[in-house]
Design a protein around this nucleic acid. Structure first.
Length: 296
DNA sequence: CAAGGCTCCTGATAGC
DNA sequence: TGCTATCAGGAGCCTT
């Protein structure tokens, strides 16, 4: 499932293969893939044709491709992409057969011989076009202005993150998955970082000391950077990078998906608990549940 | 406003 | 064999 490292791999692929190319034609093959573009598929295509794409950017799990400005008037625009659970952005030769779940095809006005394809089995992801936040140096699309900076962003505000954890009345894994507090962390890397930090997923955020939240952030960054170094995590063929190659980080996971397998620190059988309509994996010995306490 | 639950979707897999 | 139930889960939206 694409979380920050996987999305960053895709961003780099777009940077290499799509940046600077001019859109010639757009085919929307499934309306759900364009549902966040409220003006509809026809408008999406009409707005894109003839526009040159700028350098791909990313915040958390969101990607965007700025449209290079045509003239002095009008707001800057960008193609916003989210991969959802199963989305892929593939650069394919024109002659490659259509993927079973091909949703959007973008052709370019050059003779490079390749096109950009958005393929998505479960259709949680999609593309859309948006104005960018006025004056924002990164050209952040306005609809994701509420998404927090991610832990690999040099401008991520660690002190503010810690203060928010102390202020919130919630638990640590919920906070890690809240993209308005910290972005880019999904279920897999949350479990990995909590295991490395020996923190139980139900630990109230208000109990974390500054050293503990700093340590947690360090583990988040480490696990993400390790995944990035090997091209991301993939359990099946659903996630591939922009060239269609899978990542290999799943071989290095310490917590996620390891129910009944021995903890790599202490040997205790790892456990899985249903949690928020998904699962949490943890070591019952290294990651002790928080002590229940009376409400104050 | 914050917190937490619901919902969208398809395919693999388990169980009967 | 073939059916149904379950699970995977990001994030917008809704309720409390």
């Amino acid at each position: 499932m694409p979380e920050l490292p996987e999305v960053e791999v895709v961003r780099r692929g777009l940077e290499r293969w799509v940046c600077g190319r001019t859109v010639a034609a757009v085919d929307v093959l499934h309306p759900r893939a364009i549902r966040r573009h409220l003006a509809g598929p026809g408008d999406f295509a009409a707005q894109l044709v003839g526009r040159r794409l700028g350098a791909a950017r990313r915040r958390g799990k969101y990607l965007w491709l700025p449209l290079e400005t045509e003239g002095p008037t009008g707001p800057d625009r960008a193609i916003l992409a989210h991969l959802g659970m199963s989305g892929q952005l593939l650069v394919q030769p024109h002659e490659a057969p259509d993927e079973k779940h091909l949703r959007i095809r973008i052709r370019f006005a050059d003779d490079a011989g390749t096109e950009l394809r958005f393929v998505d089995q479960r259709t949680f992801g999609g593309l859309s076009l948006h104005d960018t936040v006025p004056g924002d140096p990164e050209g952040l699309p306005d609809v994701i202005a509420h998404i927090a900076r991610d832990p690999l962003d040099p401008a991520f505000d660690e002190a503010a993150f810690h203060a928010a954890l102390r202020r919130r009345r919630t638990t640590i894994k919920r906070a890690l998955l809240d993209q308005s507090l910290i972005s880019g962390v999904g279920n897999i890397y949350a479990d990995e970082a909590l295991w490395r930090s020996r923190l139980h997923y139900d630990r109230p955020t208000a109990t974390l000391t500054r050293p503990r939240s700093t340590e947690l952030l360090t583990h988040i960054r480490e696990v993400m950077n390790e995944a990035l170094a090997v091209g991301g995590t993939s359990f099946d063929s659903l996630y591939v990078n922009v060239n269609g190659e899978s990542g290999y980080f799943d071989r290095s996971l310490d917590a996620y998906g390891r129910e009944d397998e021995p903890c790599r620190r202490c040997g205790t059988a790892m456990r899985r608990r249903p949690w928020m309509n998904r699962s949490s994996y943890f070591c019952p010995r290294c990651q002790r549940p928080p002590r229940p306490h009376a409400a104050s």
